[in-house]
Computed example of a mutant assay.
Amino acid sequence: MMSYAFEVGDQTVWSPSLRVGDLFVRMHAATCSVLGTATGLTAIASDMYEIDIEIFERATLAAFNEYSSSQNATFKAMLGATLGPAVNILNYCQRPLTPRSDEESAFISWANGLSMPR
């Protein structure tokens, strides 16, 4: 089965199936566009992306702050779909987000519990 590869330096931090990887890249790019931030993703090949962890972390934090401050359930659901894997990647890279509320703590726990092949 074919898969994507997301790399930080020389380490693969996530290797989802082609459809999942493609969907994540597209959703992450759209989310960052709406929030006015860079993605931190650079295509190395059609199925391989290098993650600039500094930029990716800023983008993820921007999305997390929007998620946490919003009262719009639909907006939160849409952000959460791409934010979960991003939070998981940051945690794997030893850059965990710090929760400021029980809701944030619950979201981070959920995100870090996602099964993400490496």
Rank of each mutant, 00 (worst) to 15 (best):
Y4V: 05
Y4T: 02
A5I: 15
A5S: 09
F6K: 05
F6R: 04
Q11C: 09
W14G: 04
S15I: 04
P16V: 05
S17M: 13
L18V: 11
L18Q: 15
L18K: 10
R19P: 06
G21M: 01
L23T: 15
L23V: 15
F24S: 01
V25E: 06
V25K: 05
R26H: 08
R26F: 09
H28A: 05
A30Q: 09
T31E: 09
C32T: 05
S33H: 14
S33C: 11
V34C: 02
L35I: 05
T37A: 08
A38M: 12
T39C: 04
T39Q: 04
L41S: 03
L41E: 03
T42I: 11
I44R: 14
D47K: 07
D47Y: 06
E50R: 10
E50A: 11
E50M: 09
E50T: 09
I51Y: 01
I51E: 01
I51V: 07
D52G: 04
D52V: 01
I53L: 10
E54G: 13
F56P: 01
F56C: 08
E57Q: 10
A59G: 09
T60C: 08
A62S: 11
F64H: 04
E66S: 10
Y67F: 11
Y67T: 01
Y67D: 00
Y67K: 02
S68Q: 03
S68L: 01
T74Q: 06
T74S: 07
F75Y: 06
A77L: 08
M78Q: 08
L79R: 00
G80D: 01
G80C: 04
L83N: 02
L83M: 07
L83E: 00
G84C: 11
P85W: 01
A86Q: 03
V87K: 00
I89V: 12
I89G: 03
L90G: 01
L90K: 00
L90W: 02
N91S: 13
Y92T: 14
Y92N: 11
C93R: 02
R95A: 03
T98Y: 07
R100S: 12
S101M: 06
D102M: 12
E103Y: 08
E104Y: 04
S105I: 09
A106K: 09
A106T: 08
S109L: 11
S109V: 13
W110E: 09
A111M: 02
A111T: 00
N112R: 12
G113N: 11
L114G: 07
S115C: 12
S115R: 13
P117C: 07
P117F: 07
